[in-house]
Design a protein around this nucleic acid. Structure first.
Lengths: 254, 254
DNA sequence: CGGAATTTTGAGCGGAGTCAAACCCCGTGG
DNA sequence: CCACGGGGTTTGACTCCGCTCAAAATTCCG
């Protein structure tokens, strides 16, 4: 594990650290590559819950790295319903796609207070050009995002409410674990039940009843925005959860 | 429009032509870049309907370009239900993701007789290295695929059966149009109703009834695997269809 | 403390599922 | 040429998961 120290002296954790850890899970990057990441021009900003990062239709010239907080990708349908297509956590760059797609086809918004870092596309393009391996690593993260969308299509398309919810909880816990933001079996779950419903394609009322069922069955506890998984085995069974799609273990070096 | 001719002499259409047209919609590639594409080592193969290109869990060393026919991406849930996450048409490279993700998290299979071309990852990696602009173009196609998955999450998560189906029909017609495989308002629609159901997250029975409704309302005709859209305006309204997410018009040169 | 947002509960409804059978189309082989 | 068979499509009847509407209870936060 690459340390955040610098010359033996503990320093303030750099904003890019969780991103670097994510991109370089196998620890293969050279010092100069890492250095280059750290030198990216980043404009740090704070966001209030509900605040938008970008909206459908925008043509952004920068992308947004999450440093702290939760973000979601959402679409609004013709008759005003909202679908959340994914949640994002620290270390993610939810809208990296805008690097190569002119128009946003989806909105990104904070669902908790967030600290984010905006990186100009220009700088990212240069980074990819100068360090192809970093470019590939970034490309890879967008592919993992795509894998998550695919899994969500299956989740929303085929599973029943309890299974859907269980699946989502497994995913969130496992992703947070991967970036060190969860205890072995508990983590923050700051979204409202409305947001869970919008992510799962079920109504708030039904989210509530389904949560109660999972609690009643001793699978989870969940109060004051804190999730604790009491029985991972059964929860992941009910959720039909297979973490392959999260691609958390990168392939061995070629 | 770049012609498929060569020195004034009509030649056999190269297998990569529809791919090149897709990647270079704006016609910005240099001759040497295009040439490089044409020289990719491609192993052409024929597939029967139902035949798999790759399966969940595989670790492929090549990707697959569709030259002719329809392909789908599918997952099978724990209790045997299938969800189709996307359809693919000629010019697409459905499993390009495997270039950077070790394990397949989804299967790809032919839904009609297909002609495909397998391209070794090695060759693609070299291409990306030597011609960064081509690499970016490939990256971009994977981002468009991701945009389609996102839209499908919303489709399956929020819309009612008739709206879902209408949306899918709009998407297919528009995508086929973009690669010259559709009349202005009619195209092949070779999938079975079971497959449509698996793509939409509704039962075959209900697909059937919904199709009948669209026909009865004079929106489409659909017989012997041929779709004709009789009223695009109303169909796209019912389907709440906004083609932004297909990213068919690339941004102007930077 | 008070108001708003969120969670919870209850009751009734309806879209879509399931099951099962019939029908149809089409290719195959006698 | 027709009988056969199998996949795909269509129909009908019944069921149920999850929705809607509405109100109450609780939590959050200024």
């Amino acid at each position: 594990m690459r340390s955040a120290r610098n010359g033996g002296e503990p320093v303030v954790k750099a904003h890019t650290d969780s991103l670097i850890r994510k991109l370089d899970a196998a620890g293969l990057f050279s010092e100069s590559e890492i250095e280059c990441f750290r030198r990216l021009p980043i404009q740090v900003a704070k966001l209030r819950p509900g605040e938008h990062i970008v909206r459908e239709g925008d043509r952004p010239t920068r992308s947004c790295m999450i440093i702290e907080g939760f973000v979601c990708a959402s679409k609004t349908t013709g008759d005003g319903d909202r679908q959340i297509a994914s949640f994002y956590i620290p270390g993610d760059i939810p809208d990296l796609q805008s690097l190569h797609l002119g128009v946003m086809d989806i909105s990104f918004e904070a669902i908790t207070p967030c600290t984010v870092g905006f990186i100009p596309h220009e700088a990212l393009h240069r980074l990819c050009e100068d360090f192809p391996r970093l470019g590939s690593a970034l490309w890879r993260t967008t592919l993992v995002d795509a894998a998550i969308y695919r899994e969500w299509v299956a989740n929303v398309g085929q599973r029943h409410a309890d299974s859907r919810l269980a699946h989502l909880l497994c995913e969130i816990l496992m992703r947070l674990n991967a970036v060190g933001l969860a205890d072995e079996n508990s983590c923050d779950l700051p979204m409202t039940q409305t947001e869970l419903g919008d992510a799962l394609g079920i109504s708030v009322v039904h989210v509530n009843r389904t949560l109660q069922k999972l609690r009643r069955d001793g699978l989870i506890s969940f109060k004051s925005k804190r999730l604790k998984v009491l029985d991972w085995k059964r929860l992941s069974e009910i959720g039909d959860f297979d973490p392959t799609y999260l691609h958390l273990t990168p392939p061995p070096p070629a």
